[in-house]
């Protein structure tokens, strides 16, 4: 049963597609220290916020440069054999000004899923489309466009899929105005 860990994937990518992996972040060292601290002493749960703010961007998965996404996805499908794209979704990290796209693949022989990620700035969220060679990504890219406003150049029909065409804004972005009566006072404070 095929099973590829994130480290293995990163090794393969560095070997076969040089330059595809995004350079490591400067904060990475601090992150490993931060995450190592609670492991040494698991029973004593550190107080919330005691070891500084949590680094939301810390991840073990392979992070790919956004312009290399088509190459990497082709490599994952044709060379590694992960032929089923189960998920293509996005996360909005508003504080860091980033939108992260997550491509999750499944091998049809079984085994765990495998993820690759890419990060683009929120104000220029552009990722090349993989729909031309992977039609299964069509609706999922349209959904990411509809909810998060990610632009996929090369997509044959990039229009809204859930919301109506006249709708303005991207509802799953963190800065989409919260609606409803119970937020009235919070907005006044802010």
């Amino acid at each position: 049963m095929p099973s590829m860990s994130a480290e293995e994937l990163k090794e393969r990518l560095t070997r076969d597609l040089p330059g595809a992996l995004a350079p490591a972040r400067a904060k990475a060292e601090h992150v490993t220290n931060g995450s190592a601290a609670p492991q040494t002493d698991p029973p004593a749960k550190p107080k919330k916020g005691a070891e500084g703010p949590v680094d939301l961007l810390a991840t073990n998965d392979a992070i790919v440069l956004s312009e290399r996404i088509p190459d990497v996805v082709r490599y994952v499908r044709d060379t590694l054999g992960y032929t089923f794209l189960t998920d293509l979704t996005a996360v909005d990290y508003m504080a860091d000004g980033l939108i992260e796209l997550i491509y999750r693949f499944l091998h049809l022989d079984g085994g765990p899923t495998m993820a690759i990620k890419t990060r683009v700035p929120r104000d220029r969220a552009v990722v090349p489309s993989i729909t031309p060679f992977w039609p299964g990504a069509d609706l999922q890219e349209r959904e990411a466009y509809d909810m998060y406003g990610v632009d996929f150049p090369g997509h044959p029909n990039l229009v809204r899929v859930y919301m109506w065409d006249e709708f303005e804004g991207f509802p799953m972005r963190k800065d989409f105005p919260r609606q409803g009566d119970k937020y009235i006072e919070e907005e006044d404070e802010a």
Binding site: W164, D165, E166, P177, Q179, I184
Partner: peptide, 18 residues
């Protein structure tokens, strides 16, 4: 369909808040 929500005769019928 309007930019913010449903409209009848150009008037937003499901305004936010309030």
């Amino acid at each position: 369909f309007g930019k913010q929500g449903l409209k009848i005769d150009g008037r937003l019928i499901d305004p936010v808040g309030g």
